[in-house]
Amino acid sequence: MSTLRPPRQDRAAATRARLIDAAYACLLEGGYSATTVGAVQQRAGVARGTLLHHFPTRATLMAAVVDDIADRRVRVLSSGTAGPPADGGWDGVVDLVWRDLQSPAFAAALELWVASRTDPELRAALAPVQQRVITAARHAIIAHVGDDDPRVPTLAQFTIDLLTGTAMSRVVDPDADVTVVVQRWKQTLATLSGGR
């Protein structure tokens, strides 16, 4: 009895996904500098030629990982956008944005942001993808608080920026208790938004 093999394009897509997952895992474990073609190849368990067939350069591999990370973050942010504005208001917004910033995908994105400072090719790949994540965050915020108040865009940007900076501060001090900052921002938003 013969076993039917999946079509070639399905196998190719599965291999490509395995390579991207391996690169993502390398980023999380060792950072950008440790995410070499060789490390990804070894982690994915494929031949070098297979990896190079899908991703001829490290830059093309990293561009695919950038897209994958954005997809992961957008899924987290989109989890709060189903249906009408949530009852959580601005507290729900803070919780949703903070959940994204605590995800492994954000940690991987942070690795890429730092590396992009001196890597113009990586920076060019990151810029439009980062915009996609910000757009998803704004849609999620509108799902929580609506868009009828002219303060919403400014408060949304403040929330994203303040919480991103707070999350980044934990890189230097992983034991920092940042919950007080998150709670104080919720209180501040209640005042700035007029109690909405």
Rank of each mutant, 00 (worst) to 15 (best):
A64G: 12
L189H: 03
A14F: 05
E111M: 04
K186V: 15
G165A: 12
Y24C: 01
E111Y: 01
V93Y: 00
R43P: 04
C26F: 11
A22Y: 00
L96Y: 08
R184F: 11
A17R: 13
E121H: 09
P7A: 15
A47C: 10
V114L: 10
L163T: 00
G49C: 00
L96D: 06
G83S: 08
D149R: 12
Y32R: 03
L28Y: 11
I142M: 06
D173Q: 08
M1K: 14
A13H: 12
Q157V: 10
T164V: 05
A127V: 10
A137P: 00
K186D: 13
F55W: 07
A13P: 05
A124V: 05
T60F: 02
A107F: 06
T81G: 04
Q9W: 11
A127W: 05
R151M: 04
H54M: 09
I141W: 02
R151Q: 07
A108V: 02
D119V: 04
A108K: 01
L126T: 00
D177H: 11
Y32G: 01
R117T: 13
E111C: 08
R18E: 12
H144F: 10
S169Y: 05
V40I: 09
G92Y: 00
Q187F: 09
T50V: 06
E29W: 03
D177W: 04
G165W: 02
V171C: 10
L19Q: 06
H54Y: 09
D71H: 07
P7K: 15
R43W: 07
R99H: 14
V46P: 00
V76P: 00
G30W: 04
R48S: 13
T166W: 02
R5L: 12
A23S: 13
L189W: 04
D161H: 10
A109K: 04
T164N: 10
D119R: 04
D87Q: 15
P85W: 02
R5F: 10
L162I: 09
T154V: 15
A25F: 03
R151V: 01
L126S: 01
W90K: 06
Q130W: 09
I141L: 05
R5W: 07
L163A: 01
D71A: 12
M62G: 02
V37P: 01
D149W: 05
R72E: 13
L51Q: 06
D149V: 07
C26A: 15
R43I: 06
R58G: 09
D147Q: 14
T191F: 06
V76R: 01
